[in-house]
Amino acid sequence: MTVLKVNGRPVEISNRGDRTLATALREDLGLIGVRVSCAEGECGSCTVLVDNKPMTSCLMLAQQAKGKEIVTIEGMANGDDLHPIQQAFIEEQGFQCGFCTPGLILSTKAFLAENPNPTADEVSVGMSGNICRCGAYPYIVKAVLKAAELMDETATA
């Protein structure tokens, strides 16, 4: 078995080489919030954080993540307390069907870590690695800006 650190805890996955990280997270660990749609790195639904960087887990082998820290959507909330980004997506309704939402939230986390006070245009470009087929984009941009605001408040509180 291979040991990964997922959402702060060590976990075991199969040590098969020929499996993607997305498959391991969904099938071995039951983390269904890792959404897989296109399976070719285009849609961004399967985005997870690997050592705090956003990556499309469908284009990464599970074994490549060995020894790395992985965060999935399941690791964002603290019990019933939603992460400010999740809260912001709810408040601005930055989603419709919700399938792309976990990937977008993780992309947002990485994006805001690098650019905590972005402009709307920067957000718009920064979120372009995730497709929202329902077309919630303008509300996604608002949600990310709102999240920046909420996180800023949390940081200064």
């Binding site: 790195g41 985005t47 690997v50 956003p54 990556m55 499309t56 992309s107 990485a110 372009s128």
Partner: peptide, 12 residues
């Protein structure tokens, strides 16, 4: 590089 694939792919 900003034109290449998605931010998530560029990290890898």
């Amino acid at each position: 590089t900003k034109l290449m694939a998605t931010p998530q792919t560029r990290t890898l």
